[in-house]
Amino acid sequence: MLAVIAILFVIIGVVAGVIGSIAGLGGGIFFVPALLYFANWYTPGSMNPQVAAATSLIVIAVTALSSSLSYLKQKKVDKQSALLFFIGSAPGAIVGVYLNTLLAVEGFSLLFGLFQLCMFVVLMVKDKIKPRSIKWEVQRHFVDNEGNEYVYGYSKWSVITIAFFVGITSSLFGVGGGILMVPAMMILFRFPPHIATATSMLVIFLSAVVGSITNIFHDNVHWLYAAMLAPGAWAGGKLGAIIASKMKGRTIVLFLRVLILGIAIQMIGEAIFG
């Protein structure tokens, strides 16, 4: 039976790594449900939301490191912006670990699903919002593979503030924070989709490391399941970065919308119908 779980987790690691890398999410939206379902199927009552989130965060660090190395070679990571996001997300990741302990098992799936549903709605209205002319404190230029030119930017304190809440989300839900960070980058600061996902993965890696260290001190990590997920997550992270480099920006945004909506419906359905 354990061998079956190991094979399933390798497959899940690859799939989550690929999808998470493409969308800049880290893959936690797959790792957490998989851990809660399969671990409790193998050993009933052995996995709770806190341990699932902590174990997921360890694997997310593996996925994010793998894809970040590939994105850095493609020169799609905005390293200065990533470090700024990390300054805000690091303390948020620590706060998220403590908030996680306050969540009841019954409310975890519902809260997780509703959160993602909100992100889907935000992404749907993104294209309907007319861009305003803003003089950013920091401004960047990017030209994608199709020749489309993007101008994006931000003020440093706004990035740090938003990143703090992204860090909380990362540890609270065990999803790496990208589910909030990528939409925030694209909607608030007009990051091009390719730059947003690539930069998000580097921030996710740094934040996941901080959150994981805190979780390790609290003995929240299930190391056996983390070891089962990690090899597939590493391979999937690299493969996802390669696939993303060949995708158009609009395709990435559409992919992100469908992904968020699907997982939101699944988690809310589990919370309501059991």
Rank of each mutant, 00 (worst) to 15 (best):
G240D: 02
G232C: 05
K126E: 13
S68Q: 06
A244R: 00
K126G: 07
S70M: 08
W223K: 07
G27Q: 00
G27W: 00
G211F: 11
P183L: 09
L25W: 01
V203C: 08
V15P: 07
G176Y: 08
S67T: 05
G167F: 00
L202V: 02
V221A: 08
D127Q: 12
I216L: 14
V253C: 13
Q50K: 08
I252A: 07
V121C: 10
V4I: 15
I29F: 11
V14W: 10
M228R: 03
Q116E: 15
L239C: 04
I134K: 12
M181T: 06
P231I: 12
F85C: 10
K75R: 13
F85D: 04
L239A: 13
V210W: 04
P131N: 03
Y42S: 10
L84A: 01
P49G: 05
V253F: 06
A6W: 14
P91R: 08
Q74L: 11
P49H: 09
R250T: 14
Y37T: 14
V143R: 12
Y98L: 01
F38T: 11
A54S: 13
V105K: 11
G26C: 07
I195Q: 09
I87T: 14
R140C: 09
M228P: 01
V77H: 03
I19R: 12
N148H: 09
I5A: 12
L36T: 02
S67I: 03
S133F: 12
G92I: 04
